[in-house]
Design a protein around this nucleic acid. Structure first.
Lengths: 339, 339
DNA sequence: GATTAGCACTCTGGTTGCGAGAGTGCTAAT
DNA sequence: ATTAGCACTCTCGCAACCAGAGTGCTAATC
């Protein structure tokens, strides 16, 4: 990214800030008046045409004020806006809520989404933490009736999965126990491919249970971006850029077909730190006016993503700091109990 | 509900039908032309003022056509519209999709919501089946590390719940097994209140596990209307009645604060059959223009709700028949595997 | 050479006025 | 009881218009 003269950078910063706050194109006069500059509007105008030529600003139409372009926002995010941090007080409040909540991953994720959405006043998205490859820990088979049993599978990644098994002939709880025990002994700690590679001596029943286990594990492995929980849809859609029903529906469409990865270039999410994806860097037209601030959280073998989605005209410093802080909180929680 | 002369009923029916299709107030002339009546527009007009006086129709303004009122829809639903049924072909298609799906309740519910939304082109809501009082079936405690274990609780209602236990001192898997076994023997088939009523001889560890079990069971018991999965939000919001961004947000608000029971008079849902709640019969202003077609499914001890939400101007026959059919499918599934 | 005052120009958004169209309610005739 | 006829009402789309905001350019100024 090219570099700007000091004054142009300053002006760009003012424009971005002002536009973020007021959602209305900002003109030369406004800027000098509001921020007490010691130059005349005309000077600002001259600088603005330069900024426009270089691609940082656009005009909705001749004779409206200027609006930051995607590039403008990018520059702002990259070099203009200061690194902000949540106040200790806010951090304390957030932490408090986590302490209040039930000690369950699900509850924490819901909470994280809710806090994020409220704090940034935009849409929060949080995916559950998972490892790229899931590990068998424990299986339990509970008889429901003679032909039917419930397989409960516990993975090292702590997600209890369940599946009903239906047998061609009646089966006793006794047999089920034996089967489960065998599986538990043989499979502990293995991944699905490792299990597949292994030759096991199994009864017919055991074979059936094993298949079910594998199916569940592989299903888990293969969803590369599990559908996130969303919170605060209302926040985004009530932003003025979407007051037009059309655009609202556009965004809604993207969100409802749960496959967000088609709209957001998730491959751009860095391993470390918060990633900001601005406007047309997203893949779908409907997202042209949206930015995503997103990060990974968790520990290497077991991580998820958490971020917020809003109009490009978003309060980036706040978004980034909140996302970062919540990621650290979740990382802590994951770390603590995964060990 | 009072009864209408035959002709008035016929006219009301035409108006409702036409309005449902076109979303535009329908006038006397349109009606005779389009449906080939053998009377003059003036006659229709006379009848329409009667219908309006009796409360079945309203005018958006003088000199627009008529629009059905809530009462009009009610009459329509109750006595005018024929009972419709899905075509065998459609039923087959739907059933087919269920056979394709993974044999898991979650998958079925998702599928039901998706099918419903698509078929009626409105918002589908589906809550998971549960019993008013949940029954203990089986507990498993898996050691995670010396101070930490995962409690997996299987209830008769087949929802695996999990909870991390943290101990004041190290605990072996051996002890955990003993504890789990004891719980399984003593608690099998009981409800939370029944467990509370019983005096149990337990170790400190057992006590802690029991508390966790009870907390989970009681949490399950107390959510009286579990938050439903939604599908097809887009469908509702793209209806012309919500083209106005304001109203869109109104509905969105109701849906996002997950507590639907505050907006919808769920107590009105009949034990048997499909319930239709029209317009202002709902509790919140934002829902004034919405109707809900909803029913229970499942078996007495283990049931959920499933329904669709759309504008009052909704294709009721189709909505009702689809809801009814899907409920029967889900009931069948619940019945089959709950036994 | 950079800055600025001055000014003509452009574009939007809100307001007004108007005519066409759709639909009504009423009256009087059938 | 029905209907033809008609005056009336209300919406909607369109054009005209104006005020306001903001620009870009030129020429004077520091």
């Amino acid at each position: 990214m090219a570099t700007l003269t000091e004054r142009r950078a300053a002006i760009l910063q003012l424009i971005v800030n002002d536009y973020i706050d007021n959602a209305t194109p900002v003109g030369s006069e406004t800027i000098v008046r509001k921020y007490g500059l010691k130059v005349s509007p005309a000077t600002i105008r001259n600088e603005m045409v330069k900024l426009e030529e270089e691609g940082y600003l656009t005009q909705p139409h001749t004779s409206a004020g200027r609006v930051p372009s995607d590039l403008g926002y990018r520059y702002y995010v990259e070099t203009l806006m200061g690194e902000e941090d949540l106040s200790p007080d806010e951090k304390r409040q957030i932490l408090h809520q986590f302490h209040q909540a039930a000690a369950q991953m699900d509850a924490w994720l819901d909470l994280a989404a809710a806090v994020l959405a409220r704090s940034v006043r935009n849409l929060a998205l949080v995916t559950a933490p998972r490892s790229p490859r899931v590990h068998f820990r424990h299986a339990e088979i509970v008889s429901l009736e003679s032909y039917l049993a419930l397989l409960v599978l516990v993975l090292r990644e702590v997600h209890a999965k369940e599946q009903v098994l239906m047998f061609p002939e009646p089966v006793t709880q006794e047999e089920l126990w034996r089967t489960a025990n065998q599986l538990n002994e043989e499979l502990a700690g293995l991944t699905a491919p490792e299990i597949r590679a292994r030759q096991l001596e199994l009864t017919r029943l055991g074979q059936q249970a094993l298949e079910a286990v594998l199916r569940l594990m592989e299903a888990e492995d293969s969803t590369e971006f599990p559908s996130p929980r969303l919170s605060g849809l209302r926040n985004v859609l009530s932003q003025p850029e979407f007051s037009n029903g059309e655009k609202m529906l556009g965004v809604l469409d993207v969100l409802e077909e749960r496959n967000l990865s088609r709209a957001i270039p998730l491959d751009r999410i860095a391993e470390e730190g918060v990633t900001v994806i601005i406007g047309a860097e997203n893949r779908q037209d409907a997202m042209r006016e949206c930015s995503v601030v997103i990060t990974r959280y968790g520990v290497p073998g077991w991580s998820g993503t958490l971020g917020i989605l809003g109009p490009t005209r978003m309060h980036y410093p706040r978004a980034i700091s909140t996302v970062r802080y919540l990621a650290s909180v979740l990382t802590e929680l994951v770390d603590r109990w995964k060990g």
